[in-house]
Simulated assay, not measured.
Amino acid sequence: MRVSDEDRERTASRLQHAFAEGRLTRPELEDRLGLALTARTYGDLLGLITDLPSAEQPPPQDDVVELESKSDHIKRSGDWAVPRRLRVTSKYGSADLDLSQAVIPHPVVEIEVDLTYGSAKIILPEGGTANVDGFRSDWGHVSTTDVPGRPRPGVLHVVVTGAAKYGTLTVRYPRKRWFTH
């Protein structure tokens, strides 16, 4: 029986979830995603997920991953699994969260930032959007230059809440690299 686009996307989502759990390597994920997005029958799709655990219930909305530091710098970048909800807390340190190469299996990520003297920088994947209306800085500022604040279909949307007493929040896209020959 032939599959629909929704069936292909559901399988792709399951593969991305398995990768985020460490069940697939990046090359395996890429190979299987390519096959999932071009699959024509249910048999094609089932062959891509039969060695994975059965679909699990999504985590409860109350699940939050917490990154805490009293004075050190909190940094996440490269190939890392981004949870649906993330809480970043530091009294004297700052936080850099680079989402541009991360594995993000859900369309919306909620980030709560609680900094006293530090600043936070969030780098979005190209095209991503961010709502920072729920964040305040008493003695700093919030910068989202060129980043749309409303969600758009098919791209990551980040909702940032929380506060920084003396720090700033910057949400931006990756910097373009210019190479000279």
Rank of each mutant, 00 (worst) to 15 (best):
T11Y: 11
A12K: 07
L15S: 07
Q16M: 15
H17V: 10
H17M: 13
H17T: 09
A18E: 05
A18R: 03
A18M: 09
F19S: 03
A20T: 05
A20Y: 06
E21L: 15
G22E: 06
G22M: 11
R23P: 00
R23L: 15
L24V: 05
T25D: 07
R26I: 09
R26P: 01
P27V: 06
L29P: 01
L29K: 03
L29A: 04
E30C: 05
E30P: 01
D31K: 12
D31P: 01
D31Q: 13
R32E: 02
L33S: 04
G34I: 05
L35N: 01
A36S: 06
L37N: 08
L37S: 07
T38I: 12
T38S: 15
A39R: 09
A39M: 10
R40T: 01
R40F: 08
T41H: 13
T41C: 11
Y42V: 04
Y42C: 01
D44H: 14
L46N: 13
G47D: 05
G47P: 00
G47N: 08
G47C: 04
L48C: 09
I49G: 05
T50N: 10
D51P: 01
L52Y: 04
L52K: 06
L52E: 03
L52Q: 05
P53E: 10
S54Y: 06
S54I: 07
A55T: 07
A55V: 11
E56S: 12
P58F: 07
P59G: 00
P59K: 08
P60N: 02
D63E: 09
D63P: 00
V65G: 00
V65K: 11
E66T: 00
L67G: 00
K70I: 12
K70N: 04
S71M: 14
H73L: 14
K75M: 14
R76A: 07
S77D: 11
G78I: 09
G78E: 07
G78P: 00
D79Y: 10
D79G: 02
W80Y: 09
W80L: 10
W80R: 05
W80K: 07
A81S: 15
V82Y: 09
P83Y: 11
R87V: 06
R87I: 02
S90H: 07
K91Q: 11
Y92H: 15
Y92I: 04
Y92C: 13
G93P: 02
D96F: 12
D96H: 12
L97R: 03
L97Q: 01
D98N: 13
D98F: 11
D98S: 08
L99Q: 03
V103M: 13
V103S: 11
I104P: 01
H106I: 12
V108I: 13
V108L: 14
V109L: 12
E110W: 14
V113G: 01
D114R: 15
L115F: 10
T116C: 10
T116G: 00
G118T: 03
G118K: 03
G118C: 08
G118A: 09
S119T: 02
A120V: 02
I122M: 09
I122N: 03
L124T: 02
P125L: 13
P125N: 11
P125W: 12
E126W: 15
T129S: 10
A130G: 01
A130E: 02
A130I: 05
N131V: 03
